[in-house]
Amino acid sequence: MEKLITRKEAAEILGISIATLDAARNNGLISYVQYVQNGCVYFTAAGLQEYIAKCTHRAKPVERSATYRKPRSGRS
């Protein structure tokens, strides 16, 4: 069985606050383990990696001009 990670440790690993971690958990963005209803919440390393993968976005190239007009030459 994998080592279970507490809420505080998971928040430190991800670099987010516990409130943000709880919001992600309540929205279904991150998987968790809870043995008893209203009991302690734990996370797995695999669950944290899945959350990081979901929240990672690829950088988009910078859009050039949206128009066909040329920029004005530098005036002094």
Rank of each mutant, 00 (worst) to 15 (best):
M1S: 08
M1W: 02
M1V: 05
E2D: 11
I5C: 10
I5M: 12
T6R: 13
R7C: 11
R7N: 02
E9K: 11
A10Y: 13
A10H: 08
A11N: 11
A11Y: 12
A11S: 14
E12G: 05
E12T: 01
L14Q: 03
G15E: 08
G15V: 02
G15P: 00
G15D: 06
I16S: 08
I16A: 12
S17Q: 08
S17Y: 04
A19V: 09
A19M: 10
T20V: 10
T20M: 15
L21R: 03
A23T: 07
A24M: 12
A24Q: 06
R25Q: 08
R25F: 09
N27K: 15
N27F: 13
N27V: 02
G28T: 03
G28W: 13
L29W: 03
L29A: 05
I30P: 01
Y32I: 00
V33R: 15
Q34T: 00
Y35T: 02
V36N: 07
V36E: 15
V36D: 13
V36T: 07
Q37D: 15
Q37C: 07
Q37M: 11
Q37A: 15
N38S: 15
G39A: 07
G39S: 05
G39T: 02
C40Y: 13
C40Q: 14
Y42K: 10
Y42G: 01
F43S: 07
F43E: 06
F43G: 02
F43A: 07
T44G: 14
A45N: 02
A45W: 03
G47T: 03
G47M: 12
L48Q: 08
L48G: 08
Q49S: 07
Q49W: 01
Q49C: 06
E50G: 03
E50S: 11
Y51K: 02
Y51V: 01
Y51C: 03
Y51W: 12
I52K: 14
A53P: 00
K54N: 12
C55P: 00
C55L: 12
T56M: 10
T56G: 02
H57I: 07
R58F: 08
R58N: 04
R58Q: 09
A59L: 10
K60I: 05
P61K: 13
P61I: 06
V62H: 05
V62E: 08
V62Y: 07
V62N: 06
E63L: 11
E63C: 06
S65M: 10
S65V: 01
T67D: 13
T67C: 12
T67R: 04
T67E: 11
Y68E: 15
R69K: 11
K70N: 09
K70P: 00
K70I: 05
P71Q: 11
R72H: 02
R72E: 12
S73F: 08
S73P: 00
S73A: 15
S76K: 14
S76E: 13
